[in-house]
Simulated scan of single mutants.
Amino acid sequence: MTKIDRRTVIKGLTGAAALAPAMSHHAFAQAGGKVVIGTWGGDYARLLTKNIDEPILKPKGIEIVQDQAGDAPRRAKMTAEKRLPRGTVDVQGLSAANMFEMNEAGVVEQLDYSKIPNAKNLLPTMKYPYGVGHIYSGNVVIYNPKLITPAPTGFKDWLNPKWGDKIGFIDIQYQSIFIAASMAATGGKDMNDLDKAKEVLMAVKKAGGRVYPTNEAFAAAMKNEEIGISAIWKARVVQWQNAGIPCEAVSPVEGIPAYVSGFVIQKNAPNKDNAYAYLNAMLEKAPQEAFAVDMGYNGTVTGLNVAPDLQKRIGFTPEEEKRLKDLDYAFLAKNDSAMKEWWDKVFKA
C-alpha cells in the first residue's frame, strides 16, 4: 500500500505547476460540434451540466450529450466497442482504479497534454498518462450520533454486526466496501485480503445489513434514520450535512483509502478534439471551485479560492493526510470481475 502525502501536495500547491511538463501556450480554439460524456447519473451528472457544460462549453457552440450509467456497464461498453473504428462515447468519467483498468484493456487514449492548456495547473498526483483527475476525497465512516454510540473510530466499528440493520451499504461502491472490510479485518495492514473481507461482510449480512442501489437512495435512508452507519467519501458527508441529513464523519484509524474521480478519452472517440476541450474545461478554476462548494470534493488544480471553513470540512488534517492511502489499481483491475460476481450473487442474494 502506498501512502499519498497530501500534506506535501497541499502545501506545495503554488509550486505544482512547475512540476508539469512544458505546455502549449496557444489559445485553445473551439469549432463547435458535439461531445458525448459517459458519466454516472444523479448529482454528479447534474453538477457536470451546471458547472462545466452550460457555462463553458455550450457558449462555444459545443453540444454536450451525457451517456448516464453505472461505471460497470460503461466499462463493458468501452471494451465491446474496442474494435470499432468509431465508438459511441468520447469521454468517460471513472474512478482512478477504473481508469487504470481501462488503460490496461487498451481502450483509452494516451493523452497529449499540449492539447489541455489548463493542465499546467494540475497537481502532479492527479496527472495520469491515460487520464486526468477531476476531484478527490477519502473514504471515511459516516454515522448518525443519535443512533450510533459511542462514536466509531474506523472500519471495524462500522462493520460490527451489533449494529444489525442499522448498517448500510451502497451497491455501486462494492470495490471500496471490499477494501474497507479487508482493512477492518487486518487492522489496516492489508487492503486486498478478499477472503477475510468476505468473512466480515457475511457476518454483517447475517446481522441484517442493508444494501441501497444508489447514493441518493442511501442518503434518503440516512435522513429518515432507517440506517445509522456506513462508509462513504468525505465529500458526500459534507454534501449531505448541507442538505440537513444528520451525519458525522470519522477518518478511519486503519487508514483512509483515497478516491479520485477523473476522465479518460476513449481511443476511438468520434469527437476527439471536443473530448480534449472537455478535459480542459473541467480544469478551469471556476468549475473546480464550484465542485468544492456543491459536492465537497477537493479540486485537482492549483490556485483555487476555497473558503477556509469549507476547506477544513472537505480536507484532512496533517495527521489524517499521513493516513491517506492510494489504492492498488493493478489488484483491483485483476479482481474486479470476481468481486462484482461475489457481491451480486452471494452478498446481495
Rank of each mutant, 00 (worst) to 15 (best):
I232E: 14
E289L: 02
F178N: 06
A243V: 09
F169A: 03
L304R: 08
L57V: 12
C247Y: 08
V293W: 11
A290M: 08
G138Y: 05
M126F: 15
T49K: 15
D344S: 10
A76Q: 15
N298G: 06
V107G: 08
A76Y: 07
V250R: 00
G131P: 10
P150G: 04
G168P: 11
K82G: 05
V301G: 07
T214C: 03
I62Q: 09
G38K: 02
N98L: 11
M78C: 12
D193R: 04
D71R: 01
I37W: 09
R210D: 00
K325I: 15
P246K: 03
S137D: 13
P150T: 03
T149S: 06
G255D: 04
V238A: 13
E248D: 05
L327V: 03
K162H: 09
Y143C: 04
G12R: 00
F178D: 04
K206I: 01
P270N: 06
P73V: 01
G244S: 09
L123K: 00
D5Y: 00
Y212K: 08
G93R: 15
V237L: 03
P73T: 05
N305R: 09
K285W: 12
I172D: 09
A217V: 08
A231E: 10
L327W: 05
A27W: 09
I10P: 00
A258H: 07
K58D: 01
G299Q: 01
P59C: 09
P257K: 02
N51D: 13
A249E: 12
K3G: 05
K205E: 04
N121L: 08
A307D: 14
F263A: 11
E216V: 07
Y259L: 15
K146W: 01
W343V: 04
W343I: 07
E216T: 09
T186M: 08
E248P: 02
T88P: 08
A235C: 14
A235R: 07
S230I: 09
A20E: 15
H134S: 12
G133D: 09
G303P: 03
Q311F: 14
A281G: 11
I256T: 00
T214M: 03
Q68A: 14
V238E: 14
Q110T: 15
V253D: 12
P308T: 10
F218N: 05
N268F: 11
T49A: 13
R323A: 14
G70E: 13
Q266W: 13
A243Q: 15
N51V: 05
R75S: 11
W343F: 15
L84I: 01
A269F: 06
Y259F: 13
K345W: 01
Y329Q: 13
N118Y: 05
I148V: 12
L48C: 12
N121H: 15
G138M: 04
